[in-house]
Amino acid sequence: MTGKLRLPRFQSQLPILVGIIVIMMIFLTIVSPNFLKAQNFSNILLKIGIYILIASAANLIMITGNLDLSVGAVLAFSGILHAYMCKHGIPIPLSILITCLAAMTWGVFNGFTVGKLRIVPVVATLGTMYMAEGLAFLIARWDGGTNIMLGLPGAYTRLGRYMLFGKIPIIIVLVVIVAAIFLFIEKKTKLGRFSFAIGDNRSAAELSGINVTKVIIILYALSALLAGFSGILQSSRVGLAAPNVGRMMETYVLIVCVLGGTKMSGGRGSIIGVLLGAAIIGLLENGLNLLGIEHFYQEVARGLLLIIAVIAQKNSKSVKS
């Protein structure tokens, strides 16, 4: 009798995640008659779509042992910038292109400070977060308010609300495409392999000839690009851009990745885990809202889920993706 609490150990966290999802779905089907409907799953996917888009790249950053706290601010900055340009006569496709490039600039800056200058990622990306958020508020203010809605062209909402074949929201289609691309990157490309190598042992990766700085810059640029594109999609879907929309996004992305089994110290994680982590978050929030549970309890539930995820991670054998 050692007195230690022994929890079951699994080869990987993924079976646990699938189990949690199944249990949640059974529970919600029983307690809410409106849960098991196509429209509700569309709602859930739309809710977690933005998390998945951003977490796809942010997950690879975490696999290298780094972190990106600026994703929410870059999302808000991009939404505001896109709305501002569209309002002032820049054609929507051109505005999307410029916004994506501007977002990537934040990412390259992050990559440079983290990869080249070796600044602690939390500090470096926190700095970017404040700068991007501040600029988002400034752009809104230059436009004369706290958000941009008036004067947007009629076609502004077309992208965010577009339905493929009149049935499938475009965001869901994009999520599937991006997830597939990142699955390919993770499994079949040097970028994916190098990310795991850097997360396992940065010095060893450098000694083996991997250009660590370049890899980190590319990953941060991809993360910012997806955050920026998500900002465009989100503001287009809502029909307005507000500088405060990205608040807590970094936390959600972090929870999604950690829930999905990505090790915060690096070297382990997968896009499949991200998808499952996001599904759990989506089901949890959807379920709590369907049941009309107050916000305070929702916060408690979210925190509890994160802790459970970390415990599960600790108790699963360290199997690489």
């Binding site: 809410s32 709602n43 809710k47 989100q234 809502v238 507000a242 405060n244 608040r247």
Partner: peptide, 26 residues
């Protein structure tokens, strides 16, 4: 009064919540 939830003063958060609310009670 079917439900009262915290929209956190945010447009995006409120949109997500109302989607769920209308799913629960159309």
């Amino acid at each position: 009064l079917v439900t009262m939830l915290n929209g956190q003063g945010s447009t995006v958060k409120s949109m997500e919540i109302i989607l769920d609310v209308l799913q629960s009670d159309p």
